[in-house]
Computed example of a mutant assay.
Amino acid sequence: MAAKSPLSRRGLLLSGSLATAGVLAAACTSEKEPSAEASSGGRAADGPQKDKKVIFVVHDKNPFFAPVQRGFEDFGLIMGWKTQFIGPPAQDTQKTVELQASALSAKPDGVIFTRIDETSFDANIKRATSSGVKVILSNVASDGYEKLGVGFVGQNFVNAGDACGREIARCAKERTGKSDGVIVCGNFAPGSTALEQRIQGIKQGIGAYNKENGTSFTTEVLVTSTDESKAVAAIDAKYASAKGRIVGWAMAAFDHQYVATWAKGKNLVGKFAVGGFDLIQPVLDGIKDKSIDFSLGQNPYAQGWIAAALLAEEFDPGYPARTYDTGAEVVNAANIDAVAAREARFA
């Protein structure tokens, strides 16, 4: 198969998803086979793993996953694998279960799955491992994944939330000059292990900052949305009801972009601190124009590349995979230019 054009977040967002094994290579998929370049010169593509079939199934094929897909496909190309990267266009647990089942019906050598809760995907994971298909979890694994005997590549969400909590408290004090007030914790997917644990960590980090700095910031959770208009409406309603008590917004995912959009529309930029997670383009733009104070990255490229590498070592020589923490990189005005240049390859 001819080499495809470089993956972009925009291209990923536009791609669709289908749920049957017979169409895994259609619009929702990215199937890549070894190129002539990858197979030349005695590189790894000529080795014992050449032509292994590996399928990566995510729970929500949104722009965040563009670098995950790139890392996965870059590693697969070196190894000479046949790769596919699939997922529903928006978070949909049942559709993801169906896509996982379809992937397993395609008889792959290995799969990489996300596991966004503690039960929904376990039947497919057990089906894979019992049939000899190697499994690695990526991006989110949820509690109890170790009992399934699989490795995981992704962020420690409580620790990352703690870092976010300390940073939002620091920025709130700097932005407002206040030592008390409400920091709103946004969650666009209640029940998601990753987001719930991040909020747990945010509260923990704010509490630690209070203890260390003599402040008394409190927290309130707000359910937002991945839909911009719904998110902005929820943010606006929360601010209106808070009667000036809000000193910061700490979103558990990339919905701080919507806080920035709303704040700019209301001429409120600088009246409170704004932070959250992930490095999609609207977030990077917000840090540049100072409507967002910071965002925490989680090295999504590694969630593709390292997850594939752990799978490869399970194939040959047979080392069992363990956990790899992709960290919590704080991105703010001090390093935004360098980070934006790095992330531009996925824009």
Rank of each mutant, 00 (worst) to 15 (best):
K107A: 04
A101M: 11
K52F: 00
P89V: 03
S40R: 10
E33A: 04
G42H: 01
A38P: 08
V23M: 10
H59N: 13
P89R: 09
T20L: 14
P89W: 14
D51P: 07
T83F: 00
N62H: 13
F72D: 11
I78W: 15
P108D: 01
Q84Y: 13
T83Q: 00
A45C: 02
F56Y: 03
F75V: 14
E33D: 08
L99G: 09
P48F: 05
G71L: 04
E98C: 08
P34H: 04
A101Y: 04
T93I: 14
A66T: 01
R70H: 13
A106R: 02
S40V: 08
A45R: 00
A90F: 12
A27K: 14
F85T: 10
K50P: 08
G42D: 02
F64L: 13
P67H: 04
A36F: 14
A106Y: 08
I86M: 10
V23T: 12
K107Y: 02
W81P: 01
R70Y: 12
G87W: 00
T29H: 10
E98I: 12
V57L: 00
S39F: 10
R70G: 09
W81N: 04
D109R: 06
V68L: 03
G22S: 07
F75N: 02
E31H: 04
I78M: 15
E98H: 09
G87V: 00
G42Y: 03
P89D: 06
G22Q: 07
S40E: 08
L24R: 03
P34I: 04
L24A: 02
D92H: 10
P88I: 06
Q49C: 09
V68W: 01
R43V: 11
K61D: 11
S39R: 05
K32M: 12
K52T: 01
A101H: 13
H59E: 15
F75T: 13
A101S: 08
S30E: 15
T93K: 12
P63C: 05
L77I: 14
P48M: 07
W81T: 03
A103W: 01
F75R: 09
A21L: 05
M79D: 14
Q91P: 09
A44S: 11
A44T: 05
L99R: 08
T96Q: 09
E73C: 06
D51Y: 06
Q49T: 10
C28W: 15
F85G: 06
D46I: 14
D74V: 11
R43P: 05
F65G: 05
D109L: 07
